[in-house]
Design a protein around this nucleic acid. Sequence first.
DNA 1: TCAGATACTTTCAATTTACAAGTAACTCAT
DNA 2: ATGAGTTACTTGTAAATTGAAAGTATCTGA
Lengths: 133, 133
Amino acid sequence: MIDSKKPGKSACVDRCSPCPVACSLDLLGDKWTLLVVRDLLLGKTTYTEFQQSPEGIPSNILAERLKRLLAAGIVEKSRYHERPVRYAYHLTEKGRDLGPVLSALVDWGNRHIPGTVPRGQIEAQALWLSKGG
Amino acid sequence: MIDSKKPGKSACVDRCSPCPVACSLDLLGDKWTLLVVRDLLLGKTTYTEFQQSPEGIPSNILAERLKRLLAAGIVEKSRYHERPVRYAYHLTEKGRDLGPVLSALVDWGNRHIPGTVPRGQIEAQALWLSKGG
DNA sequence: TCAGATACTTTCAATTTACAAGTAACTCAT
DNA sequence: ATGAGTTACTTGTAAATTGAAAGTATCTGA
């Protein structure tokens, strides 16, 4: 493993609210971060795989988000191949614990946004959804 | 009720991904939107109440987010008093269905961000959490 | 008539994002 | 051994979004 997290005794960095929702959103509240987590939960591991997702995350944003998730202890990075150097990203336990959040978003989207691919079809690909909700 | 939603046959406006997570995040994926939903779930109803939350949402952002939530059919607005005109915002069923998403964020925050106020203490104020998770 | 409350809107500097292109290290085919 | 291709990024820059502050409109009550 290459990067590590700092324990940090107290909570909310940006906003200094005591609310767990506010604190979580400081880290996760944007259009891209949870999509990277989704990809990781779906079993993707490399920079290129994340880039190839249908939403088309910009490269600089992806790099920045991976750094933040790494710093937050939500993902970890490892070299899975030397010469040429290749990296794999994986969720930590903290990251896997976001399963229920993603799961709730899938359910809400399925119920209220017509045309979204149903939970069952995602389940076929993913491991987390079966136990996530 | 003052504003209304358009049904709209298909789904994802911005990104045109079929993923329910991506579509949900197009609407909800930022630092403030879900905090307004949280306040609504906690029983707050007026513009001023939202502004008074400890996170201190900027006034222009609040106005814009309320418009978006209104347009998306997540909240509805009503006059609860004439002369002086006073407005109350409430969640629609679509909005109340975000309860599990917020609930999952509370659980994740409580588990992984030290110093956040525990679910039990929020439950005391809110109705949604007891059945939301 | 004048301070105070509610519900916003406007202005503008600063930050963030998106898009495109570039870089560095290495492989493999010719 | 040269040159195209792959992976994993970084850099530059224009455009969009945000944040902080101030302003506007309407009404109340002293």
